[in-house]
């Protein structure tokens, strides 16, 4: 894949984090985080378990409030405009995010409804989506009748149904086979080309190489943030995996 060459053409900032702190009692989960993410960028958010990634994602997606700092997401601040943030972001995690006792169409209709899309728009986008995946015949089948590899890709597309400006992906490819992972990344690139900002956490270091920029967190702090290429140069490592090991040790 030659995606690493892709430059960030767009320069509008969609996520702006300045001096973000989150404390739980004496424990500091996020310790002075500052970074910006531009429109259409694929931003990798790496770090060992417990480094504070999940806490940061919860704050950015409006589920939790920071202790201090100036943070805006899609132009809205995370303190009192969380409703507006929620309308403008998509979210997908490694966990199954579709209902296995509902049909494909019912799942999509539900998402459309929750995000306030009209019936007509929902129907149009559903057909578009099913056409793209060649799943028209499965429209009225239960989700469980689909091959497992399809489900993550489908879940991703459903998370984009309301055309959010940012989509948060929390380890979306955990437990997915290599071929599906590759196809999944093609979808991610497609979305990013279309101007959607991708904010992704992953444990697969090869995936980190696909990101436009990567940040690595350790003990609540961001210890490295740059293009994968630059990071490798800076740490004199062959892969991001080696960079990660040098930093997190």
């Amino acid at each position: 894949m030659k995606y690493t060459q892709r430059s960030t053409r767009h320069h509008d900032v969609v996520i702006d984090v300045q001096h973000m702190y989150k404390r739980f009692g004496s424990f500091v989960a996020n310790d002075d985080l500052s970074f910006t993410v531009r429109k259409g960028e694929i931003f990798g958010f790496l770090g060992a378990n417990g480094a504070g990634k999940t806490t940061a994602i919860k704050i950015l997606s409006g589920l939790s409030k920071p202790t201090s700092g100036e943070i805006s997401v899609a132009g809205y601040n995370v303190y009192n405009q969380t409703e507006a943030i929620k309308r403008n972001i998509g979210y997908m995690s490694q966990k199954f995010s579709l209902y296995d006792d509902l049909t494909l169409a019912e799942n999509i209709r539900f998402y459309g409804g929750v995000y306030g899309l009209s019936r007509k728009v929902t129907r149009e986008r559903m057909d578009e989506l099913l056409e793209q995946f060649g799943l028209m015949d499965f429209k009225k089948s239960l989700i469980t009748s689909l091959p497992l590899g399809w489900l993550q890709k489908l879940a991703f597309s459903v998370a984009l149904l309301h055309k959010p400006s940012i989509v948060f992906l929390d380890e979306p490819t955990s437990g997915v086979d290599p071929i599906t992972r590759r196809q999944f990344w093609e979808l991610i690139y497609q979305a990013a080309e279309g101007g959607t900002t991708i904010f992704i956490t992953t444990h697969y270091m090869d995936e980190a190489e696909y990101c436009d920029r990567v940040s690595i967190m350790d003990q609540g702090k961001i210890v490295a943030l740059d293009k994968p290429q630059k990071l490798k140069q800076e740490y004199q490592a062959g892969t991001i995996y080696d960079v990660f090991l040098k930093i997190a040790r």
Partner: peptide, 14 residues
């Protein structure tokens, strides 16, 4: 258990 609760929580539903 399914993980759909996260989806509901980040959605605009209160």
């Amino acid at each position: 258990e399914l993980g759909t609760m996260e989806i509901l929580l980040v959605s605009p539903l209160r």
